[in-house]
Simulated assay, not measured.
Amino acid sequence: MSRSWRGRDIMTGDAVEVVAEQGVITSIRPIKVDQQQLPWLSPGWFDLQVNGFGSYDLNKQEMTEEDIAGTTKALYKEGTALYLPTVITGAMDRMKQGLATIAAYRNCSEVNRAAIPGIHLEGPFISSEDGSRGAHPREHTCDPDWEKFEQLQAAADGLIRMVTLAPEREGAIPFIEKLVADNVIVAIGHTKATGEQITAAVEAGATVSTHLGNGSEPMLPRHPNYIWQQLAEDRLWATFVPDGHHLSPEVLKVMLRAKGKRSIFVSDTTQFGGMKPGVYRSLIGGEVRLTEAGRLHTLSNSNILAGSAMSFIDGFETVLHKTDMDMVELIEAMTSRPAQVMQMDDRIGKLQVGLQANLTIFQYEQTIDARPTIVETVVHGESVYKAENGV
Rank of each mutant, 00 (worst) to 15 (best):
E129Y: 10
Y83G: 13
G195R: 09
G70R: 10
I368T: 10
A69I: 14
T89V: 15
T335S: 09
L290N: 08
I28K: 04
D34M: 02
V208P: 00
A100R: 06
A114S: 13
G44E: 14
V341Q: 04
I119E: 03
A306H: 12
S383Y: 01
K276G: 14
S27P: 05
K261H: 14
S132Y: 09
P221H: 15
Q343R: 06
I88G: 02
N358T: 14
A135I: 07
D234G: 02
T210S: 14
M95I: 01
P338V: 08
V279Q: 11
R281Y: 10
T291H: 03
D268V: 07
I264C: 03
E150G: 01
G171N: 03
T207G: 08
K60V: 12
S55D: 08
D314V: 04
I284K: 05
Y105E: 09
P249K: 15
V163P: 02
F312P: 04
E17I: 10
G195P: 06
G134D: 04
S216E: 09
P30K: 07
Q151G: 01
F46P: 01
E233A: 07
W146Q: 05
D143T: 00
G307Q: 06
R94D: 02
V375H: 02
S300N: 07
L236I: 04
Q22P: 03
D182A: 01
Q97I: 04
P144M: 00
F272N: 05
G307I: 09
D314T: 11
G90M: 08
A20T: 12
R262C: 12
R161A: 09
Y83L: 12
T318A: 15
E292W: 09
I31S: 02
S4I: 05
A193F: 15
M344K: 12
M327G: 00
G7I: 06
V87E: 02
I116V: 12
Q352K: 05
P30F: 00
S132K: 07
F46I: 03
G349D: 15
T298E: 00
V16W: 06
T64F: 08
G90L: 06
V341F: 04
K60G: 05
A370N: 07
L48K: 10
D345R: 01
N225V: 09
Q151S: 05
